[in-house]
């Protein structure tokens, strides 16, 4: 059973007078998220990331297709007992204190009344808001509100956590703390579905990533799969590569360049890579490392989106 599953999910918004103007927010979106994973959905603004979460939480109804959470077909009010959600640009009642916000939304989320006090104490401690618990949330900074939002999403001990830009407005130390909390939750078997623009962060914690553009799924895979840059290898050598060896290697690889004590060899196959290594060793070139070249997630993402735009 998947934690989240969607099949050919589509959403068309109708705007304007007589609702004649159609905007396709999501088109035939199918994904499967296994339990206990951190799954990140990436995409430029307006790609349909938030629309997808909203359809899963029944905030918007799909135009076509189907989705399920923990095997329960949507829409289903009861499934939301097992779900926590931190929306983007959330607005908490400013007249409540942090403590009261957790109690109010905890009660609405179905948190057991007997466990409420202990749960609030532990979550405020977890997100570092214990000393601000009696302050009205209208006085909270953006970062504090995000922390409170995360605590709110965790109030009913959800099995799945939907986080829309969870580190928006949070300082670097706070971001690291939130990452640690998410990793800890994953260890406890929780599924985390993340929408974020901060690709460096996504790269650090995600198990799987999907890229969405203009409502269409472009690619889905592990972070390693997403960032692999073809068959280029960086070979660390002790010293300088003799020109004759470089020429011999260029005869059978796609490309070979040297920068300091690193050679970048673009090979078609791993056999070609082994041939380069054999050539270097035969010429007494000392090999210090062999690393498959990778892009950052951001580079891969931008290249993917640019490729799509050119189509």
């Amino acid at each position: 059973m998947f934690a989240i599953e969607s099949e050919e999910l589509s959403k068309v918004y109708r705007n304007g007078i007589f609702r004649r103007q159609e905007v396709a927010a999501l088109t035939g979106f199918s994904i499967q998220v296994a339990p206990g994973q951190i799954f990140s959905l990436l995409g430029p603004n307006g790609a349909g990331k938030t629309t997808f979460i909203k359809m899963l939480l029944s905030l918007a109804s799909p135009t076509s297709g189907s989705a399920s959470i923990l095997g329960q077909k949507l829409p289903d009010v009861r499934v939301r007992e097992k779900v926590g959600y931190l929306p983007e640009n959330h607005r908490y009642p400013g007249y409540l204190t942090g403590d009261q916000v957790l109690r109010y939304f905890g009660e609405l989320g179905g948190a057991p009344p007997g466990a409420m006090r202990g749960r609030i104490d532990s979550l405020l401690g977890l997100v570092g808001l214990t000393q601000w618990r009696t302050m009205k949330v209208k006085k909270y900074s953006k970062g504090m509100l995000q922390r409170l939002g995360l605590a709110q999403a965790l109030m009913n001990e959800p099995e799945i956590l939907f986080l829309d830009e969870p580190t928006d407005g949070v300082d670097p130390v706070g971001r690291k703390e939130i990452r640690e909390i998410l990793k800890d939750l994953r260890q406890k078997g929780k599924t985390i579905f993340l929408n974020s623009h901060l690709l460096s962060e996504v790269e650090l914690i995600s198990d799987r990533v999907a890229v969405l553009d203009r409502g269409r799924l472009l690619k889905v895979g592990t972070v390693d799969e997403m960032t692999a840059a073809g068959q280029a290898y960086v070979i660390g050598i002790g010293g300088t590569l003799p020109e004759s060896v470089a020429l011999a290697a260029r005869a059978f690889v796609m490309g070979l360049t040297q920068q300091g004590e690193n050679i970048t060899a673009e090979c078609r196959t791993t056999a070609e890579l082994n041939r380069v290594i054999d050539l270097l060793r035969a010429n007494n070139v000392e090999i210090t490392s062999v690393i498959r070249q990778r892009n950052t997630l951001e580079e891969s993402f931008i290249s993917l989106i640019a490729k799509e735009a050119r189509k």
């Binding site: 905030l59 959330h90 939304f105 609405l108």
Partner: peptide, 15 residues
């Protein structure tokens, strides 16, 4: 029903 508030309410198990 304002954006940011309604999401909080309707993500809870309430009709």
């Amino acid at each position: 029903l304002e954006k940011g508030t309604v999401d909080l309410y309707l993500s809870k198990p309430i009709a």
